[in-house]
Design a protein around this nucleic acid. Sequence first.
DNA 1: TGTACATCAGTGAACGCGCGTTCACTGATGTAC
DNA 2: TGTACATCAGTGAACGCGCGTTCACTGATGTAC
Lengths: 242, 242
Amino acid sequence: MTARAEARDAFRRRLIDAAYTRLATEGAAGLRMRQLARDLNVTPGALYRYVSGRDELLTILVIDAYESLAETVRRAEAGVPRTELERRWLTVWVTVREWALAHRNEYQLIYGTPVPGYEAPAETIAPASGVTLLLAQISSDLWTARGNGAADPAPVSLAEDLSRIAAWVVAHGMSVDAPGAMVLATVEAWTTLLGAVGLELGGHFRGSIHNNAAYIELLARRSYAALRATILNDRVREGADV
Amino acid sequence: MTARAEARDAFRRRLIDAAYTRLATEGAAGLRMRQLARDLNVTPGALYRYVSGRDELLTILVIDAYESLAETVRRAEAGVPRTELERRWLTVWVTVREWALAHRNEYQLIYGTPVPGYEAPAETIAPASGVTLLLAQISSDLWTARGNGAADPAPVSLAEDLSRIAAWVVAHGMSVDAPGAMVLATVEAWTTLLGAVGLELGGHFRGSIHNNAAYIELLARRSYAALRATILNDRVREGADV
DNA sequence: TGTACATCAGTGAACGCGCGTTCACTGATGTAC
DNA sequence: TGTACATCAGTGAACGCGCGTTCACTGATGTAC
């Protein structure tokens, strides 16, 4: 590798780091080419040797944020024994919240208001599924461990959506036969989790919940209970404990 | 009232309308004083006779958005017979979603990423509670109609938050003695509702749920069932039906 | 190893925009006597 | 009702910024013979 190629890689990394820092401290609106050039002691025009423009930089950061979140949650969840399903589930919830609090602007970049004038390209879709995948995995493990055949029916109006999700689940090597109600409970969990985190970051619990750590834990427990409750036979066999 | 005072009021209204239109079509970032001046065929400086600056305009729009949302939902909910609690509950969910879809930028202004450099002042707090209030009211009605004494316990870690919420509930003339678990179920409902709407607006259901109307209805039904389930005696008396 | 040529990083300047806010001033409207 | 004065809406210009992107050019690095 030539010195030039090395310098090139190094500078590109420095550029992305600078962009990341600006995003973290000022949000997506603070991501300005001229500002980054100043940060790097370089003329604005120089940046265009490394990146096609502001949009490409945004795309890189979007992917980065998804991957950072997924990686953080994956690592935390991997630390919990495989059989302790509820703890794994809880860990995902809690870790998503903690990552979001520690990376507010990155979180807003991916889950907040779309950046005006920026359309996320296709390459951001795959990295976006990290957290969902984990929830699906735990849910799938629960089904494998305790489910069998019968379960609550899912609404017909969502049949098409459910088969789309089933295809996605299969593509990721998980058990296909989990009942629709269980799949929906998983999607619902994801909805509530991101709702809670988004509202907390937006300061919308100002008049109500202040102990948000306890709140998210409560939500996680309740959603896990709801997940279990979709497995009809499980409910019949053992009631609502654990 | 003098002609001048009338003209003043009229222009102020025109200014706010123009701001609203810009917000609706371009989002909060499109709200620029100079642009509004152009929209109104007036010099930029003239606007400062009517408004102290961009921030005041934003505040007006934030309050406007909260009130428009609350009013829309209130009107829809008021059309449902008082005793049909589940339908009232469903109506709130569905109407919030519909308002959000029809007013994407207004929704993002209040529930999306905070506008950089803008801090919402205290006067925006009261109008923000419209939807929560409605959910609380239905929940309170449910308690009055069917609850009594005993219910699931709420976690101690949230006791303080619960008493803050109880005080707020009292201040709005609702029944005070609803159990903590029920109050939490109501907050959870609000969390899930805004989560679902936010994720839909952000395009995060692209690979999973497409029939979002059916999905929100499912969530609403499930959350109503969960709300009822927190009333222990109710559950014991009648099971999970209705 | 040395020379000739090709590649390419970074500069400096420009293009063509945009913004929020202030302020001296003009001319119309309103008020008091 | 008429005049003198006060109020105030809106102008036009300026202040002091900012932005993304392009492009001819310089000078250093790399490559082929």
